[in-house]
Design a protein around this nucleic acid. Structure first.
Length: 269
DNA sequence: ATAATAACCTGAGGGC
DNA sequence: TGCCCTCAGGTTATTA
């Protein structure tokens, strides 16, 4: 589920509630996530959360003793609720804080992860080979053009490769390609430099706009206060079985790397 | 190195 | 009502 905007929305939603808070108790109801939650996590009661940062789709809680690295997978979400609030199904992890609030991690499909990292979290093996942040200065036309120049893979698959650029998932890949006027199946090496420049801007604008609206809710995702993300209303092609809002053409659907893609055959080439 | 494919899970929705 | 099928925001490991 969550792509970069949803993860960033989550980070912003929980930050003020968890920052500087002591963890009074760690409750692990289900440790079988993407990787088993290690026993070290259970022994973090008494530690303090210094801050919450984000790298790609990972959330990083910096503690006074090590770090917690979270991933929301396909169906994960976090909420802040008073300790003792009624539990839902699939609330696998709960951090009870000194301020009386609990951070609850819910993930029906269990593709998410919670890892303990004693050292520098950005050096963790899952994070140390990630591509640049799409909203940062390192993601520019030169960079993406270099990545695409010799690749025969479809541009949508290139965009979704976290070793090339982080945070762009299945929804926003289709949306950004629509904004840039590029078909998702185009071979990356066949895309002109001006089109690459448009794509860089399209990715940035799409993600920034989605963050402003609290992300996109299709099924599972909620913000930390329980509200849905409102970018769903701004989707132009993803999940659209009707017509293009710009030209009226019927939106086309295809499957790439086992994922659904959508595009307008007239606006995108 | 790059590219394609299967795998990990639960739940919702449609057709019969 | 139930059963069977397909599909869903991600990413890693394995294989060509």
């Amino acid at each position: 589920m969550p792509e970069l905007p949803e993860v960033e929305t989550t980070r912003r939603g929980i930050e003020a509630h968890v920052r500087e808070q002591r963890i009074e108790a760690v409750i692990l109801r289900e440790t079988r996530l993407r990787w088993p939650i290690s026993a070290e996590v259970a022994s973090l009661a008494g530690s303090r959360i210094m801050d919450v940062s984000r790298r790609g789709k990972y959330l990083i809680m910096h503690l006074d003793r090590g770090n917690l690295i979270w991933h929301l997978g396909m169906s994960g979400s976090m909420r802040i609720l008073p300790i003792g609030a009624h539990s839902q199904d699939h609330e696998h992890v709960e951090l009870q804080l000194a301020n009386g609030q609990a951070l609850k991690f819910r993930d029906p499909r269990r593709f998410g992860a919670l890892l303990y990292c004693a050292g520098e979290p950005l050096q963790h093996r899952l994070l140390n080979k990630l591509g640049p942040e799409p909203l940062g200065d390192d993601f520019d036309t030169d960079y993406l053009h270099r990545c695409c120049r010799r690749r025969s893979a479809a541009i949508k698959n290139v965009l979704m490769n976290s070793h090339i650029v982080v945070g762009v998932g299945n929804i926003y890949a289709s949306e950004a390609l629509f904004r840039a006027g590029i078909r998702p199946a185009r071979a990356a090496r066949r895309i002109s430099r001006p089109a690459i420049a448009r794509l860089v801007e399209a990715v940035r604008e799409t993600l920034a706009s989605a963050i402003e609206q609290g992300g996109t809710t299709l099924q599972d995702f909620t913000q930390a206060d329980g509200k849905p993300g409102y970018f769903s209303q701004s989707l132009q092609v993803y999940g659209n079985s009707g017509n293009c809002g710009v030209c009226g053409s019927k939106i086309k659907h295809l499957v790439q790397a086992q994922r659904s893609s959508y595009y307008c055959p007239k606006c995108q080439s």
